[in-house]
């Protein structure tokens, strides 16, 4: 799968981007319509072609290297993220239902080595979904994050351990 992507990349990034966008759009069209007669398939092809031609650079940036490998690594990263989401919810539920409400909110900031759009968005959304932290703001040039933490332990997990930053950097290979 990754090897095929690499060969297509050599043929020119733009055509590959259009093709990938078209395939994704058409798969999604079939999924949503669920009808396999000629009229619906042909109108699907036409619509997807128009959308892919106009807006392929929104999904696949022209210089995006190793995009299939990164998608594959992202799929491996998602189960860990799902586990973190469950932990986050149990954590919030504990803080909500505890009679004394053990919260101690603070705002922290830290810098990362991430620069790509997808990497920054993935880390920002992961921070928001994991225990006790929400991203306030991101500065793309320095990879700097402002994060609101609900207590000391989740803040330390981001500042000291930095597990999540390392995992996202591994996914997008931006150390």
């Amino acid at each position: 799968m990754e090897v095929g992507g690499g060969e297509k990349m050599k043929m020119g990034g733009k055509g590959f981007g259009i093709l990938l966008t078209f395939c994704l759009m058409f798969l999604f069209w079939i999924l949503l319509s669920g009808l396999f007669d000629a009229f619906h398939l042909i109108s699907g092809v036409i619509c997807c072609a128009i959308v892919a031609l106009i807006s392929h650079d929104l999904l696949v940036k022209g210089k995006g290297k190793k995009i299939l490998l990164k998608s594959f690594r992202l799929i491996l990263y998602i189960p860990w993220e799902l586990g973190q989401i469950v932990l986050a919810n149990i954590d919030v539920a504990y803080r909500v239902l505890h009679p004394k409400m053990p919260i101690d909110p603070r705002i922290i900031e830290f810098e990362t080595s991430l620069r790509g759009d997808f990497a920054l968005v993935t880390l920002a959304n992961s921070i928001t979904l994991t225990p006790g932290t929400i991203t306030i703001s991101v500065e793309p040039e320095k990879g700097k994050y402002w994060v609101h933490a609900i207590a000391k332990e989740p803040a330390d997990a981001l500042l000291v351990d930095q597990t999540m930053q390392k995992k996202v950097a591994d996914v997008y290979m931006e150390w």
Partner: peptide
């Protein structure tokens, strides 16, 4: 359960930011 906890958190937490913690997370998993 998680949606309910989110709502309770929205009512109990002290300010805007902490209330968003309750609703933003619990709604997703709920």
């Amino acid at each position: 359960f998680f949606t309910l906890v989110g709502t309770i958190g929205l009512l109990r937490f002290p300010d805007f930011y902490t209330r968003l913690h309750a609703t933003g997370k619990c709604d997703t998993l709920g």
